[in-house]
Amino acid sequence: MFDVFKTYLLDKISLTDEELERIRTVSIIKKLRKKQYLLQEGDVWKYDAFVASGCLRTYSVDEKGNEHIIGFAVENWWTGDRESLLTGQPSRFNVDAVEDSVVILFIHTNFEQLCKDIPAFNNMVNAILQRSFVTAQNRIQAALSYTAEEKYLNFVAKYPGFANRIPQSMIASYLGMTPETLSRVRSATAKK
């Protein structure tokens, strides 16, 4: 599975064989079964995690037992709880596998050392963080100002193929609507 990450890296940056080997030696490959946790609420997150295969979701559960999905991560995406990672505080979120998945984990101190020692790797990480920030801004703006139909159409446009991989109830949670509302929206958009 490290080959998947190697391909991802070499598609984005130039690395020497020695740099690739250095990255490989600190990588931890973790296989997850569907519904298996990568992170549970209350635990401190200590990794940088790359999704080599599968799909994961990040979510919280409110006092009524309702799930609130804040994000998904599929192949070639990163996942985890950045707040817990940076503050050392217990996570408010769960991360689990929507389908059988494989992630490549890096203990954060090792990841930081890679960033210090390999400038191209550091530049790639910074670019990813910047894109993540923009994505978060756009998601907040959509959540605050879009209609239910606009939220769904935006989701399908940005993430084509997710609708076939992710259960509708999870998509509804991510979009901040009930499964019934999502069903009505999907029916209405299909008729247009």
Rank of each mutant, 00 (worst) to 15 (best):
F93C: 03
T16W: 04
E180P: 07
V95F: 04
E83F: 12
F2E: 01
A142S: 14
E18F: 13
K31Q: 11
T16D: 00
A52M: 02
W77H: 06
A157E: 14
A120S: 15
Y174I: 01
E112C: 15
M1P: 10
V95E: 03
I171A: 01
D62G: 12
M1K: 14
E63S: 14
E75D: 15
V51Q: 03
K151I: 03
D11T: 13
A148F: 03
L20A: 01
L153C: 08
V26Y: 09
L32F: 04
E99W: 08
Q36Y: 01
L10V: 02
E149Y: 05
S183M: 09
S145H: 12
K31G: 10
M124F: 12
L86W: 09
V156K: 14
V103S: 06
Y59C: 06
G80F: 01
R22E: 05
E112A: 15
D117H: 09
K158A: 10
Q168W: 00
F50N: 05
F133D: 03
T178Q: 14
Q141T: 08
K158R: 14
L144W: 11
K192D: 00
V74E: 15
S91G: 13
V134H: 12
Y37A: 11
F50Q: 00
W45S: 05
E112K: 15
E150D: 13
H108G: 04
Y47W: 15
G176C: 11
A143G: 02
T109R: 15
F111G: 07
N110D: 15
F121A: 00
S53I: 03
V4I: 06
A97W: 00
T7K: 11
R82W: 09
D11Q: 14
D43M: 07
R184D: 01
S183V: 00
Q137F: 04
W77C: 11
L38K: 08
L10W: 01
W45R: 12
I29K: 13
L20T: 04
V103D: 03
Y146A: 09
Q40P: 13
V74Y: 06
N94P: 07
T135C: 08
A52Y: 02
C55K: 06
D11I: 04
F5P: 00
G161H: 13
Y174K: 03
A188V: 04
S101G: 07
A163D: 13
T147C: 03
S183F: 07
S60Q: 13
M1L: 05
D81N: 11
N123V: 06
F50V: 03
F5H: 02
